[in-house]
Design a protein around this nucleic acid. Structure first.
Lengths: 253, 253
DNA sequence: CGACACTTTGAAGACGATCAACGCCGGTGG
DNA sequence: CCACCGGCGTTGATCGTCTTCAAAGTGTCG
């Protein structure tokens, strides 16, 4: 497969950061493009781990069904995200702990698990890139775990909306939710009913939600409500609309 | 500092697994032994990240104070655990997100953060070891996060006791809690009162707790109660009393 | 139009947090 | 030696939050 058929996502992957282009392209030769139709599974909870994936188009939902019949969405991976990084280095644990399902028609770049292990051990730049990515992921998961014990549902939703806004580079003064509320609820570890009610109460804190349309009316209010200085937003490396607005009030602190 | 003054913990560190002894000892030369008295802080939430630590003696509590005044214990690091691994590779984030406090008189081996970065980039064995350790940590945090949304307090406590038993190699038919209940509650993200009440209800599921003494009366019962096939115990690499008992009934499944 | 998925709303209930009080030590100081 | 105190754990009563079950509304697509 000629390298120029690779989608241009590959130009900004953290995994290959700092790598000479020719080196990167040599590595990419081992990947295969794969299409997943909406609703199709890339792999399922319990399958053995064979590959590492990079999402090129569409989005994948990573979720797990618990024994009691609940579904918890771990992550929604979109263009540029990788899937399975952490699992591959666990060694003796060889099965997926989540299912990966396409939320919309998607294409992924697939690499053998062994390829990732080998590349990491032969190329210290890649190894460090993976370490960095994993560290950020750890940070995110830790904070989400903490939020589940210290924040109310409303606060978590508010925090989620802020993060959404920053990460997807949306306009805080009005944007559409990129996916359904049932999925958001599952992502936040709450019931759809709770999310629905909660969105109503957020009006009191400067956030208006009407159907799928979200509008931050009072950024200070929601900011204070979710205590955003401890939120995930700190972690975003890119300067976005939201953080610019935040900076305007920084002197206040 | 002559290498033979290093405590013998170093012989089993995952970080140095697969490394020739002389290579390991060369790396260890960059570490400094440091004592921390009970109640003393190794670093505090907000401090800039300067070092990487390996616990040689005693135990360290990693916890964070949330804006609302709650304290959440992230982890209790004992002999052989490392502290700060994940944070060091995050690059631009330079401050600690938790405080590290000695639960009892402790000694740690301290390395400059830069040392870890440099070692990882120059020594692929070490880099892979760190990756593996981080992956396991990710796994643990993910499961704990999931448990907070899918399991009741009683189930989490039961699961914790099982894990405790396996990891510390305690006798399931009777052992003492290695630390106070307030700390356990904080570790599990619940109030001491809740833990106290919860321990009572576990009798119904085959676990007796009297003061600090724990006794698994009916391993099957508690096992089913916490749905242990989705628990952290799967992750333990060592074969222990608990898992041996589990294996006896495996054919049932 | 009608089937269906998704969302909202309502009412009830379970669960854990909170506040307050008490019992139980181990230590300190008179 | 006893009185007092503080740390820790338990117990009880109450409250707020989230889940659960049920029902109705909204939209899309055939």
């Amino acid at each position: 497969m000629p390298q120029n058929t690779f989608p241009e996502v590959i130009n900004n992957l953290p995994l290959f950061a700092g790598l000479p282009v020719e080196e990167r392209d040599r590595l990419l030769k081992d990947g295969k493009l794969r299409s997943i139709a909406q609703g199709e599974y890339l792999f399922r909870n319990g399958d053995s781990i064979k590959s590492f994936y990079i999402v090129c188009k569409g989005s994948m939902q990573l979720s797990r069904e618990t024994p009691n019949g609940k579904e918890v969405t771990t992550e929604v991976s979109t263009r540029g995200s990788s899937i399975g990084k952490a699992d591959i280095f666990k060694g003796f644990i060889t099965y997926h702990r989540v299912s990966a399902c396409a939320l919309e028609d998607a294409t992924v770049l697939e690499f053998p698990a062994e390829w990732l292990r080998k590349t990491a051990s032969q190329n210290s730049t890649v190894a460090l890139n993976i370490l960095t990515a994993l560290s950020h992921y750890v940070h995110m998961v830790e904070i989400e775990a903490e939020q589940k014990t210290t924040m109310s549902a409303a606060q978590r939703v508010g925090c989620f909306l802020q993060r959404l806004c920053v990460m997807h580079n949306l306009d805080p003064s009005g944007f559409d939710l990129p996916y359904g509320k049932a999925l958001i609820a599952s992502r936040l570890g709450m019931e759809p009913e709770t999310l629905s009610r909660t969105l109503g109460t957020l009006k009191k804190h400067g956030v208006e939600v009407k159907d799928n349309f979200v509008r931050f009316k009072d950024i200070d209010a929601i900011d204070e409500f979710v205590c955003s200085h401890c939120s995930l937003i700190d972690d975003c490396s890119t300067q976005q609309a939201m953080s610019q607005k935040k900076n305007e009030r920084l002197p206040k602190r």
